[in-house]
Amino acid sequence: MSDANEAALDPQASAASAGNETALVHCTNLGKSYRKGKESVPVLSNLNLNIPKGDFLALMGPSGSGKTTLLNLLGGLDSPTDGSLEIAGERIDRFSRSQLTRWRARHVGFIFQFYNLMPVLSAERNVELPLLLTKLSSKQRKKQVAIALELVGLKDRAKHKPSELSGGQEQRVAIARAIVSDPDLLLCDEPTGDLDRTTADDILSLLQTLNQQQGKTIVMVTHDPLAAEYAQRTLHLDKGTLITGN
């Protein structure tokens, strides 16, 4: 059987072959297991996945299938126990904890289900947080924050605190925070899980715009098939393995 045929039948091989030449993310035999007492509990195993630059990938699957674990590995929040993980040409599976921290600040933007904004800070101060890690001056930071807030349509809410914003607006602030430092990769963990349908559609349209117009590579974990429709492609995970893709 030829390699091409094998890839057609094997979803992992199919996922791995997608945009292989221009892959931003390149996972090979990626595995993650946790220790529970003396036992090793595998969460992800032998996962092969390529994510091309500019892709908008939806990851679906039942609870416990390893979606969030994969997202954590892609975002450098956790390290794999097996395989290799290369992002933008760097083997992040070999990075130390502090190297991962610095790498995250430069390359990844995170968007969470519950927004995770700092309640004591205004929208603009929340968006500014990742820029505090750069050498930008206060003036330059303010300029970038204004651009990011304008991009998500919240320029007029810059001075508001999260408690003074709606759920949709909070998520827009979180998106602005994720893109303000112009990362290569946006990782979204159930970004619309806490929003009503209309607001969810707005947020997904915004992500789609960022993908199509700004060229952002997005990986989105979701349970919602309607949300997945906004992505360019969807991969399904079950018991730590990719089972299908489109």
């Binding site: 921290t101 600040a105 995170f110």
Partner: peptide
């Protein structure tokens, strides 16, 4: 604690 986790996620060092 969750907010500190977010700070670290954003790239704030230990």
């Amino acid at each position: 604690i969750p907010e500190m986790a977010i700070l670290k996620t954003l790239g704030f060092t230990d």
